[in-house]
Computed example of a mutant assay.
Amino acid sequence: MTGPVSRPSRRLVLGWGAAGLLGAGALAACSDSAPTAPAGPSSSTPVPSTSATPARPDYVGDQRGVALCAALSALAASLYSGAVVAAGDGRLGQVPGVVTAFLSGAGAQHTEHAAAWNALLTAAGRPAVSGTPLSVETERRATLGRAAAPTDLLSVAVDVEASVGATVLARAGEFTDARAAALAATVAPVAAMHGATAAFLLGRPTGVTPGPAGAAVGLDALLL
């Protein structure tokens, strides 16, 4: 390309969801209407007590990739929140202010990204992803829990950003809805920027190949 390409502002990214992204196209929702129940038994017949388990959301087509990105962004935000708490509780020693500021800022942007992905789902009539329903969650939280120094927090950040970026780029190549692809194209450079910043603070080259924790997360990791 011959010149810089302006990226949509964060407000614009979040605005896409409210404008009805992924409407009746590739993210068209399946009907959630429950079938009409048959007539119940007479009042003289005892009715057994049952406890119904809510059905999991049925994300189909592009919706599943969007749900994965929403869950991963939410997990990234949660990990950064935990890192900020660890930085402030004293157990890691003196954490430089620039590190805490980076962790807080990056976490806030991942929170906004999760909201933007969820806006695509709700605009299509599907439920937003709640929490962080990913099979990789336990292992990634355990890695953060093992942090013993400020550099460990930054190492977690490097892996988080590499994983988010790789996952979003992988999904971008599969999205059939142009606006989902556009959101992916906005989120991926932000993840790359965060990763480069964390690597710089660690004194690492920014082009180092990430480890397993920095790999793309597949659709099979989504527990929905």
Rank of each mutant, 00 (worst) to 15 (best):
T2W: 01
V187L: 11
T100H: 03
V164F: 09
R7Q: 08
D177Y: 04
P96E: 06
P57S: 00
A71F: 10
T36P: 08
C30P: 10
P48K: 00
T186S: 15
D159H: 04
L79I: 13
P35L: 00
D177K: 07
R11E: 01
M193L: 10
A215G: 12
Q94E: 14
T138F: 04
A123R: 12
A74G: 15
A216G: 09
D177M: 09
T2P: 01
H110K: 07
L120S: 05
Q109R: 06
A28F: 06
A119N: 10
A76E: 15
G214N: 09
H110Y: 11
G165H: 12
G195A: 11
A147M: 05
Y80W: 03
V60L: 05
V85H: 07
R126K: 08
A55R: 08
P150D: 01
G82Y: 04
V5Y: 05
V160F: 08
T151M: 00
H113T: 05
G20R: 05
G214I: 06
L92A: 07
A39D: 12
A199C: 06
V164E: 07
S130C: 12
G93P: 12
A106Y: 07
P8K: 12
A116E: 00
G203M: 03
L14G: 10
A34D: 12
G207I: 01
A185C: 04
T2Q: 09
A101Q: 13
Y80G: 10
D62Y: 13
L121V: 13
Q109I: 15
D62N: 09
A26E: 02
T143S: 08
T176D: 12
A87Q: 06
L183G: 04
G105S: 11
D220F: 03
A52D: 10
R126Q: 15
M193K: 00
R140P: 15
A148L: 11
L224Y: 13
A37E: 03
A83F: 00
V187T: 07
S81T: 10
S130A: 13
G90A: 11
S44I: 14
V158G: 01
L201V: 11
G173L: 01
G20H: 14
A29G: 15
A74N: 15
C30Q: 02
A101S: 15
A198Y: 02
V187K: 00
W117I: 09
V95N: 02
P210T: 00
G90E: 01
G17K: 10
L68H: 02
N118P: 13
V164D: 09
A213S: 13
V95C: 05
E174V: 14
R10N: 04
P41F: 00
S135K: 12
P210V: 03
T53R: 11
S130T: 14
L134V: 14
A18Q: 12
A77C: 09
V13N: 11
S43M: 03
D32M: 06
T197N: 05
T36A: 14
R56A: 15
E174W: 04
A115V: 14
S135I: 10
S31E: 04
V13P: 07
A77M: 07
D89T: 07
G145W: 08
V136M: 06
V5M: 04
V66G: 03
P57A: 00
